[in-house]
């Protein structure tokens, strides 16, 4: 019974299925964007739940789900050390080039 272990876990944690993060691609050529999270017993159920919860109003053409425990986040306490040093380095932006008029979508 392959779902057995999973459902046992669910019962032990009082019907709380694992949390999943949901990413939706709204149309071809765009990135998958994080849209929210939901509970599901496994990946297959997570995708179906995502379809029912997040694509009811034509929001998407593709779904990714990732179990939330696999997402590792930066620590807010590190924010200064991580992100502030980039503030005064304008030369890292490619804004000093002349873009010819014929180049679109830059």
């Amino acid at each position: 019974m392959k779902h057995d272990a999973l459902i046992q876990t669910v019962i032990m944690t009082q019907s709380e299925w694992p949390l999943w993060e949901v990413f939706i691609r709204s149309k071809q050529g765009l990135d998958h964007k994080h849209v929210g999270s939901l509970h599901a017993a496994d990946a297959q159920m997570a995708i179906q739940n995502a379809r029912d919860v997040y694509t009811r109003r034509q929001e998407g053409i593709s779904i990714w789900v990732v179990e939330s425990k696999h997402v590792h986040a930066s620590n807010p306490d590190d924010a200064e050390a991580f992100f502030d040093p980039a503030n005064d380095k304008v030369y890292r932006h490619p804004t000093f080039y002349q873009v010819p008029d014929s180049i679109k979508h830059m």
Binding site: W17, H39, A40
Partner: peptide, 12 residues
């Protein structure tokens, strides 16, 4: 519904 996600699935 037993959980929110299935509640929505059935409503859909």
């Amino acid at each position: 519904g037993p959980i929110l996600e299935q509640d929505l699935a059935m409503a859909n």
